Amino acid sequence: MNPASKTFWPVVAAVGFGVGFLGYCVYFDRKRRSAPEFREKLKAKRKKQKQQPGSSNENFTINSNDPDEMRRYFLEQIQRGEDCLSRGDLDNGVDHLAKAIAVCSQPQSLMSLFQQTLPPELFQEIIMRLPRVAPSLLGTSSSPFGGATISEPDLE
C-alpha cells in the first residue's frame, strides 16, 4: 500500500464533512429566514428589548443634587453607548452617549472628545438628540449644557 493513499482518504473525508456541514448550515439558515413568522418574532424580540428596564426610558429623571448618582449614571451611559456601538446598534448607542453628555459637568470637552473619536455622522446624530434627551433626564426645559453637577472622570 502506498503511503500517500493513507493520507488521501482521511483528507477527502474531512473535506467532504466540512462541505456537508457548511451546506447544512446554509440550508437551515435559509429555511429559518424564509419562515413566515421569523420577521414577526424578530420585531417582537427587539420591541421587548427596548421595553426592558435597562433600555432607554424617556420618563427617567436624574437627581441632579446627588453627585454620586450623576457620576454613576454618566459612567453607565458611556459604557452602554460604547457597548451598543461595538455591537452595531447605532441608534441606542447614540442615545446613551447623548444622555452621558446631558449629565456631564463639562459637556464641551466630552463633545470635543466624541468629535475626534466618532465618525462625523454619529457625532451629528448625538448633537441632534441632545435637545430631546437633556430635558427628559434632568426634569427641566433647560439647555443640556447648564446645571448638571457631575465631575467628569479622566478620559485619557
Results as ranks from 00 to 15, higher is better:
L97S: 02
T7R: 12
M128A: 09
I101T: 06
S109P: 01
V103W: 03
N59S: 12
R30G: 15
A44R: 04
P107E: 01
R32T: 07
S141Q: 13
G93R: 01
E156Y: 11
P131I: 05
G146L: 15
S34V: 05
S105H: 00
E40H: 02
Q79T: 14
K43L: 12
S141D: 14
C104T: 01
E152M: 14
K31T: 06
S55D: 11
Q124E: 11
A44H: 01
Q106C: 04
Q49V: 13
F38H: 07
Q108K: 14
M1L: 15
A35S: 07
E76A: 13
R87E: 11
K99V: 02
A102I: 08
Q106T: 05
G88P: 07
V133D: 04
R80F: 10
A134E: 07
E125S: 11
S112K: 14
D89C: 05
T140K: 11
Q77Y: 02
G139P: 03
L113S: 13
V11P: 00
P131D: 02
T140W: 11
Q106D: 10
K99N: 03
P144S: 09
P10A: 15
G139N: 00
L137D: 03
P135K: 09
S105A: 00
R33S: 08
A100W: 00
P135C: 12
P36K: 14
L118S: 05
R30W: 10
L113W: 12
L75M: 14
P131Q: 01
E69W: 06
V26E: 15
E69F: 07
T149I: 00
T117Q: 15
K50V: 07
F21Y: 03
L113Y: 15
K48M: 12
F38N: 11
K47D: 14
D91M: 06
L122K: 06
A13W: 04
Q49Y: 01
E76Y: 08
P144H: 06
P131S: 04
D154H: 08
T140E: 08
L155S: 15
R46F: 05
G23E: 03
G93K: 01
G147K: 02
S151K: 15
